Simulated scan of single mutants.
Amino acid sequence: MTSRKVVELFYDVVSPYSWLGFEIMCRYRNVWDIELKLRPAFLGGVMQGSGNKPPGLVPNKFLYMNNDLNQLSKYFDVPLQAPSDPFEAMFKKGSLVAMRFVTAVQEREKSGDKQLERVSRELWRRIWSEDKDITQSASLTEAAKKAGLSDREIEEVLKLSTSQEIKDKLKNATQDALNYGAFGFPMLVCHVDGKQQMFFGSDRFELMAHCIGEKWHGPRPDHSAAKL
């Protein structure tokens, strides 16, 4: 008997390409015969650990990214819109506080990942659709409320997010990504029949489907799905 396929998705809410990968995998989790494991991690740590350079340090790459994201937003049906100062949002402010918050949501939720999915999406929406902050407690609280968390739950998550337990969990997830060979996000690691295969980026889904024995049905496998 063939064991079920497991797909780990490593992501950071500061990364617009991660948002694309995240939405596709959430759409396909019930289309493909897979178990999807969401793995929030810290992109800054992966960039530093792998020796990679952010696109903002390569002018031509940064210019290309804006046009690329506009086209991808339409193709994937994800409401991406670059913030007024992408470099500041992505690299000066960073995402460490936000990713600790997301990790705390995951830790508190324990069973399932519905809250994790919704909170992650709301944080992406804030930075990559509404040009809003994701570093302040008030910003995290607003995103969590939109995701359906109660005031009590948000208070618990905010407190948990500053604990050493959560700092270590995020650090370990980031190291796991590096151990798999990550140099950026999104990164997907597919485990099939005792073997693993890593795919980077939001443009490898057709190849990934082929490698895991599934079929790519385009960015909207369920065309009746509600708009984001």
Results as ranks from 00 to 15, higher is better:
177 A>F: 09
167 K>S: 10
153 E>L: 00
158 L>Q: 07
132 K>V: 00
147 A>E: 02
168 D>H: 12
160 L>N: 05
178 L>Q: 14
145 K>T: 12
154 I>W: 00
134 I>T: 06
162 T>V: 09
167 K>G: 13
155 E>Y: 03
174 T>K: 05
156 E>S: 08
136 Q>M: 14
177 A>I: 02
170 L>G: 03
157 V>E: 00
139 S>C: 08
162 T>A: 12
143 A>C: 13
163 S>K: 12
144 A>Q: 04
176 D>H: 10
149 L>Q: 01
160 L>A: 11
143 A>K: 07
153 E>V: 01
175 Q>K: 14
176 D>Q: 13
160 L>V: 04
167 K>C: 04
152 R>N: 15
146 K>Q: 12
166 I>M: 03
161 S>A: 07
155 E>I: 01
176 D>L: 11
157 V>H: 00
148 G>E: 02
161 S>W: 00
178 L>N: 13
167 K>H: 13
164 Q>N: 08
132 K>G: 03
167 K>N: 15
130 E>A: 14
177 A>L: 07
149 L>K: 04
138 A>L: 13
156 E>Y: 02
134 I>H: 05
141 T>L: 06
142 E>F: 11
178 L>M: 15
134 I>W: 08
146 K>L: 12
167 K>I: 05
173 A>D: 09
138 A>V: 11
130 E>P: 14
168 D>W: 08
149 L>D: 00
165 E>C: 09
131 D>R: 05
130 E>Y: 15
135 T>E: 01
134 I>Q: 02
175 Q>L: 15
141 T>M: 13
151 D>S: 09
159 K>N: 15
130 E>V: 13
160 L>I: 08
131 D>F: 13
172 N>E: 15
175 Q>C: 06
159 K>P: 01
146 K>M: 11
147 A>S: 12
139 S>F: 08
147 A>G: 14
145 K>H: 13
130 E>D: 14
170 L>H: 05
133 D>W: 04
174 T>F: 02
145 K>S: 13
135 T>M: 02
177 A>R: 00
166 I>C: 03
169 K>N: 08
153 E>N: 01
130 E>G: 11
131 D>W: 07
166 I>R: 02
171 K>P: 04
171 K>L: 06
142 E>C: 06
135 T>G: 05
146 K>C: 12
141 T>E: 14
164 Q>S: 10
156 E>N: 09
147 A>H: 03
148 G>S: 11
169 K>H: 07
162 T>E: 10
154 I>H: 01
171 K>H: 07
163 S>F: 01
134 I>F: 07
130 E>R: 14
137 S>E: 09
174 T>V: 10
153 E>D: 03
